[in-house]
Amino acid sequence: MIELASNWKRTLTIRNPILLAAGGYTTDAAHIGALVTLPTTWRARAGAPMPRVVEIPGGVLVRTGAANPGLPRVVREHRRAWEQSPAPIIVAFAAQGARDWATMAAQLESVTGVGGIELHFNPALDAADALRAVRAATELPILAKLDLDNAYEIAAACVAAGANALVLGRAPRGMKIVEGKAWYGRLYAPSVKPLALRVVGEIRDLGLGIPLIGCGGIHSAEDAREFLAAGASAVEIDSAEWIEPGIAERVATEVDA
């Protein structure tokens, strides 16, 4: 068993270090540690204009604009499944809806099956301020998912403001020229792994005293073990699920073996 909120009164205990990141709102996972939902906002968001997906060699840039049905609908449609989920549900909050995070956190306080929330930061947000507001609104464990760009700089402030674990990190932002214009998206690819691993190692060395969760480019059990060796207590598997549905379950089994 792994405790992801060791510095907090409410626990978030997982039985396996493999988490499924941004896995829609599924609960279909018997062996993994926890299920992290698609990033959600308070109100529904239609998302970014097309194109939203631009493939590059060995990876893909994605910009969904946090398209999601809105938290009230998500809770309404999935409450029963979450109650019966064998693994804790961690509800992710999209950066685009940061002004509503405290309201959203309070809404989830009493939803059975929800074990924590994951706040998705970007460099434009004041992470410490946002964390303090959410901390005041909920006793749910808070995971702060940071941009790799500034994770090292803000990690300590996030811990001081109430984060129970740091997720390192969000997919790095990239750019491509599309039809003559700059197009920005987040990069999902195996090549992200070394970038995320470096950040995990650097922040481990800060000795912040809370669990670190590695995320980025994990496509195998060996990838997951590298993050654990670098100092992560757990890892999130994200876009690999698009290529091989069920890979999180497989990696969880292999890492356990």
């Binding site: 239609a46 998302g47 876009s239």
Partner: peptide
């Protein structure tokens, strides 16, 4: 017909607005 990275509803890259919401 939009790019559908996951095909299972997990990534929301193919969300479209309808009169019934996204």
């Amino acid at each position: 017909d939009l790019p559908m990275p996951c095909g299972t509803g997990a990534c929301y890259a193919c969300a479209v607005e309808t009169t019934r919401g996204a």
